[in-house]
Write a protein that binds this DNA or RNA. Structure first.
Lengths: 141, 141
DNA sequence: TTCAATGCAAATATTTTGCAATTCG
DNA sequence: CGAATTGCAAAATATTTGCATTGAA
């Protein structure tokens, strides 16, 4: 997934690709830690000073709806975002350095399937986040 | 876990057990759906009209810290709460009726242990929520 | 040329805080 | 009694919205 893919996805869903959105996508696509609207706004204004705060909110919402951005819960509140990885899903966030790691989603799918069978519930959506110290930070200690 | 256990836990942690908190605990302990501060406040004022909104925020925070209450993410925002079940952990919420179900946490612990081994990260905290249609709502369709 | 998207400011939540009055231990 | 807790109101945050203007298709 790169900038062009995201812009393409916007077009494909009937949105116009504007200058601001391009700047915002550039900012978002390459972050490896959860970023807040305020941070996104700050960085974006480096690329394009006239960018408005409300536009960041509106764009982030769009991208979240399209499944390109993912909202992170329980890490400095619930208003930070990460690019969504489609294959990998299970998410680990290091509370020391803030880096996000995507893990294999197969074990989670397995767990969900089992839970469905045992309970009779139909599971449509899942949200898993793991927190701790990443391998890198552990070795630096 | 009942009202007395919660009040006991408050005492044990150096808090005073006041009239408001007692009312709030009563409200919280028996809900089977995620409740918002506003809802808690409304219900609590039924029991005790002079209850203030800020006290609800403060009490909820205390109870969350003590691990008695759990914040639910991604269901009508991120500001609803449920009593935390200590043994069961994995959480399923029905998006039709709003009921919360606690599932066996063993499979999640297993998944976490595997992930730790495969990645070298140390996982300290986990957050899993599942959404969908519960068995009861499926049968009513 | 048209209408979606923007920027700004104002309007809305939402949550936190200061403080005098209250109440638990 | 003394300190923690409360209720209220005000303050601080966070997010959404209205609207005139801009700009992508």
């Amino acid at each position: 997934m790169n900038t062009q893919d995201w812009l393409q996805a916007l077009r494909a869903n009937g949105y116009r690709v504007t200058e601001v959105q391009e700047a915002l996508v550039q900012v978002l696509i390459q972050t490896d830690r959860p970023v807040s609207v305020e941070e996104i706004w700050d960085t974006a204004r480096g690329l394009r000073p006239e960018t408005g705060r409300a536009t960041v909110f509106r764009t982030v919402e769009k991208l979240e709806t399209l499944g390109l951005l993912r909202r992170i819960h329980g890490y400095h509140g619930c208003s930070r975002f990460l690019p969504a990885a489609s294959v990998a899903f299970l998410l680990f966030i290091c509370t020391v350095c803030g880096r996000a790691y995507y893990l294999d989603r197969a074990p989670l799918d397995e767990l969900i399937k089992d839970a469905e069978q045992q309970t009779g519930h139909q599971i449509v959506e899942s949200h898993l986040q793991l927190f701790g110290t990443c391998a890198r930070c552990r070795s630096l200690k």
